[in-house]
Design a protein around this nucleic acid. Structure first.
Length: 681
RNA sequence: GCGCCCGUAGCUCAAUUGGAUAGAGCGUCGGCCUCCGAAGCCGAAGGUUGUGGGUUCAAAUCCCGCCGGGCGUACCA
């Protein structure tokens, strides 16, 4: 059991007794006691016991209990009296050598060094590093990554992929039955685009020799033509909008000048600000369209193509519709293209070391959609509205549309079908959707419908995440407005790592020297790790600025820092000529005389706590923070405590235990994040 | 208009969900390689947690009002 959980258990017992003590006292002395408090329920007990937590500051010890203050109110006693009683009934003598009451009634606990040492020895001998398997395993479906295939993956896909993968690995390690499922977008308009593209601009030879490049070319070309026509048709109204908002802003300005009462003025100023904002947005939109139109005008070849395909957007939708209806030609093309698309994304997954138990894309559910809509209808939930089939929900303005006017289904329909499938085939207790925050309303509706059709027993969670921003604080895009390709970023990160690995000053120290294979291996592990770590180190719900320079700088709080700590640890063990397993098997509890030894041991023992945090909030950044803290504690230890050059053998053996445990925690922790390590770098 | 999210050090971000004197990294300034890896370590400066109220033993965290930003909002996903 985790130390924290043991302490909480001890406190739960002490709480029970202490509360009883005060109740008894109250009834015997009814004059001074006004409370008719009957005692704590099991749930209360647990919630008060949960107020035991690691201290924020080492001056207060290792753990602190904060439950005396809130109890004071309920029991009608001074918080310090409660704390005193708690300490009296608390039985932690085997773990703690010091229990103190401080401030308004904090109970500070300091663990015995002997106890910490014993725990480290146990941890090192344990395959699971002292992390217990969960006592309540659940079947958890993790739905993540889910890119649209047939178009290149871009930075927008990295968060879902990396966060989902880390959660799946972590929960699996904790003992849950995790099923990962990549809900691929393999049935949408992008295939209509590629099909249309192939029929009109396709190059059979190119498709045979480099299918992925050809498909990507077709997608981009069709997309560009569509964007061009859209821009050309909208630009006039965009210009008008700029002029209109400018006039409105002017009028609003005049109104402010004319206003007499301050109150009126204030409200007018507010509306002026709102109009100004609209004006700015209108300008931005116009400029964007202007850019598309003018930059295309210079490209004669492109303009020729665009002119030949004026109705391309409708035609693409038509191709998509025909695919969905089972048109033989389109279906044959789809079947031909899909494997290439899969190969393409699989190559990226391989680079990222990400894999899935299932890849059930939208196409997989296609034939179930009609039934989903009919079932909703017969259950009285769905009804016709403006030609579409809709589910109206009390808490939402807009309905959830499950079938369009033209008969086509939507992603809401697919998501419902997926839900049925996962219940039936996966027996899920919990389904996690690792998807962008911007889709939260969709999931709120989806979950609301799910509750109405009998999914109350499955915990549905939208594991939302924020947007990846560029240096300007706007969603990360290239200057031309297109998304930044994921693969080029990975390449860049790896090549920067390679430059550091190949630094002659650094490699000169290594014996034996590195060959090219090892250098490439290290650059790959460091480069890919840098990208993942940067993403995982932010809380998932916050937006963050994507700064490649910072990620691969190899300084400060980066994956490199932790990988480097691991490499140093490995270096010591290798130099010592002692196999890690041997150290684990033959060593006793380490002595923790130096403060940095004790601090390192304390940190190592909190590994399981960090995983519990990840689990509670579906947030891998807690594990990242923990690993950084661990690597830091190791660095301090490493600075202060020679291992192989310690004054005596006993100290060397003792410290080797800490070194070996550090190695395992860092490696295991990074592995749960999907990040690899190397023995030297 | 309505709804959701966010304002924390010069910059990028944390803060175990209400706990003690708000922490890291980058950047700046100053120290440390005859000693197991300097991709490292130590120190300094830097804050009225956007703002004004409220709730209580205790607020960056919860509630209300402002100010500023982002996103979503009936047939794309």
């Amino acid at each position: 059991m985790l130390i924290l959980d043991r302490l909480r258990q001890s406190f739960a017992a002490a709480l029970d007794k202490a509360v009883q003590h005060f109740i008894d006292q109250g009834s015997a002395d009814s004059a001074s006691s006004t409370n008719d408090f009957a005692g704590l329920s099991q749930q209360d007990l647990e919630s008060y016991a949960a107020m035991v937590r690691p201290t924020a500051d080492p001056r207060f010890g290792d753990y602190q209990a904060n439950c005396a203050m809130p109890l004071a109110k309920i029991l009608g006693r001074a918080p310090r009296d409660i704390a005193t009683a708690l300490v009296h009934y608390l039985d932690v003598a085997d773990m703690c050598d010091d229990v103190q009451i401080a401030g308004p009634g904090f109970i500070n606990l300091r663990l015995k060094s002997q106890f910490l040492g014993d725990q480290i020895a146990l941890m090192l001998k344990d395959d699971r590093l002292g992390v217990p398997l969960t006592t309540s395993p659940r079947t958890i479906v993790v739905d993540y990554s889910s890119p649209n295939v047939a178009k290149p993956m871009h930075v927008g896909h990295i968060r879902s992929t990396v966060i989902g993968d880390a959660l799946a690995r972590t929960f699996r390690f904790m003992g849950h039955h995790v099923i990962t499922d990549n809900h691929l977008g393999d049935w949408g308009t992008q295939f209509g685009m590629v099909i249309y593209g192939f029929k009109h601009f396709g190059d059979e030879a190119a498709l045979t020799s480099c299918p992925v490049d050809e498909l990507s070319r077709l997608y981009r070309l069709v997309n560009r033509i569509i964007e061009y026509h859209t821009a050309a048709s909208e630009i006039e109204s965009a210009r008008t909008a700029v002029a209109d908002t400018a006039r409105m802003a002017e009028a609003a300005q005049d109104a402010i000048a004319a206003a007499k009462e301050p109150k009126e003025k204030k409200s007018l100023e507010k509306s002026h600000a709102s109009i100004s904002k609209k004006h700015a947005a209108a300008i931005e939109k116009r400029d964007k369209l202007e850019l598309i139109v003018t930059s295309s005008a210079d490209d004669a070849t492109f303009m020729h193509l665009a002119a030949q395909h004026p109705d391309i957007a409708d035609a693409v939708l038509n191709e998509t519709a025909r695919l969905h209806e089972g048109d033989a030609d389109n279906l044959a093309l789809w079947k031909r293209f899909l494997p290439y698309c899969r190969d393409e994304i699989d190559r990226i997954y391989q680079r990222l070391d990400v894999s899935f138990d299932h890849t059930l894309g939208e196409s997989f559910y296609h034939e179930m959609l009609g039934k989903v809509v009919e079932d909703l209808r017969s259950a009285g939930l769905a009804s016709d509205s403006e030609g579409a089939v809709c589910v109206f929900l009390p808490d939402f303005d807009a309905p959830m549309i499950v079938r369009k006017r033209d008969g086509a289904f939507l992603y809401a329909t697919t998501d419902l079908a997926t839900l049925f499938y996962r219940r039936q085939h996966f027996a899920a207790d919990e389904i996690l959707y690792v998807v962008d925050s911007r889709q939260s309303e969709h999931f709120e509706k989806l979950f609301a419908v799910a509750r109405r059709i009998g999914f109350e027993d499955i915990q549905l969670v939208h594991v939302n995440f924020g947007t990846v921003l560029g240096a300007d604080g706007r969603p990360f895009k290239t200057r031309s407005g297109s998304s930044v390709g994921l693969e080029s970023l990975l390449d860049e990160a790896v090549s920067r790592a390679m430059a550091v690995v190949c630094d002659p000053e650094r490699s000169a120290r290594l014996d034996p020297p590195m060959d090219d294979f090892e250098k490439r291996q290290i650059a790959s592990v460091v480069g890919h790790g840098a990208i993942k770590y940067a993403d995982l180190s932010h809380h998932r719900t916050s937006d963050y600025k994507f700064d490649l320079q910072k990620m691969v700088s190899m300084d400060g709080n980066t994956s490199t820092y932790i990988q480097y700590a691991y490499a140093r640890v490995s270096g010591i063990m290798q130099k010592g000529g002692t196999e890690l397993q041997q150290i684990a098997r033959f060593s006793n509890a380490p002595l923790l005389d130096d403060p940095s030894e004790r601090a390192l041991a304390m940190t190592l023992l909190k590994f399981g706590e960090s995983l519990a945090q990840v689990r509670a909030e579906y947030a891998p950044n807690f594990l990242v923070d923990y690993l950084y803290e661990t690597a830091r504690a190791y660095a301090v230890f490493n600075e202060n405590c020679p291992v192989l050059k310690a004054s005596d053998d006993q100290t060397t053996r003792s410290r080797l235990v800490l070194v070996a445990t550090t190695a395992r925690v860092l490696r295991q922790g990074l592995e749960l994040l999907g990040i690899q390590v190397v023995a030297r770098m």
